[in-house]
Amino acid sequence: MWEYTDKVQEHFINPKNVGELDKPSGTGEVGSLACGDALKLTIQVDELGIITDAKFKTFGCASAIASSSVLTEIIKGMSIEDAAKLTNQQIADALGGLPKEKMHCSVMGREALEAAIADYRGVILPMAQGNVVCECFGVTDLEIIRAIRESNLRSVEDITNFTKAGGGCGKCEDKLREILQQTVQAMATEKASQPKTQRLTTLQKIKKIEDVIEREILPTLKKDGGGIELIDVDGDIVTVSLRGACSRCQSSLTTLKDYVEKKLREQVAETLIVEEAR
C-alpha cells in the first residue's frame, strides 16, 4: 500500500473543482486510457490575464486525482505568466509530497496546465514535437530531457518515476541511459562555462585567486622550472609576477593570457584581467 500524505487523501476523497467549464479560455488534455492516467483541464482567463476558474476531469489513481485537484486550487487567481512558471515539484509540495514512484502524477498536472495555457495563447507546445522514445507511454526525448534538467534526475529509474518512460516493455532503457548521459554531460559543460555572476567581496576574490594559483597554476608552471607570485588585486585587474624560467620566457605573455587568465576566469570570475607587474 502506498504511503499517501493526509493532504493527498483529502484531495482524493473530496476533490475540488471536478468537472468541465462550459466555455473555457483554454483546454489541456494529457495522458490516455492506455497509459493508465489522463487529465483534462479547463481554465477561464479574464481580460487581465488572470485565471478566474479551473476545473478538471481525471482518470487515474489517488495521487493523479489529488494532483489534479490541488493544481486547480493553486492556479485559481494566478496570472497566466505565473501559472506558466509552475513546476511539478510545486504541485507535489502542495500535497505534502508524493511517493517517488508517483511523481509522474505531478508531472501530468503541469503538462495539462501547459497545454491549457498554450491553447489559450493559441500556440503549439514544443514538447510534442520531439521524437517518441518510449512507445509504451508515448514519451518524447524532449520531455525526458526536460524532466532530467528540471528535477535533476540521475538514473533511468528516476526518469521512469517522473515521466513513465521505460515503465512498460523496457525496450527503450538503453536509449534512456544514453539521453541521461548526454543531458547530464551537457548540463555539466554549461555549468562550467557559465559566467560566475555571483558577486564576490574583494577578500573572497583574493582568497579564491590565491587558491587557484596555489592549487593549479603554480604546480603546472613549476614543471617547466617557472613560478608565479600574486602582487595585487584591484577590482578586476590581477597583477602577477612571473618567476624562474617564466620570467625569461619568450612566450610569457601567452602563458599569462592563455593559461593564467583563462584559469582564473573559469574558476573565479569571468571579468578578470591578468597583467604582469612592471
Binding site: 502506498w2 493508465g36 482518470f59 487515474g60 489513481c61 515503465g167
Partner: peptide
C-alpha cells in the same frame, strides 16, 4: 475508472480486495 482509486474508496468502507491495475503494483502496466 482506475483500480487503485476504486480500492482506496473501498478501503474507506473497510472492504479489502485487490486490483490488476498498474498503480497498485508499483509497476506502470
Amino acid at each position: 475508472v482506475e483500480g487503485e482509486a476504486i480500492l482506496l474508496h473501498m478501503n474507506r468502507h473497510n472492504i479489502c480486495a485487490s486490483s490488476g491495475s498498474a498503480c497498485t503494483s508499483g509497476s506502470l502496466e
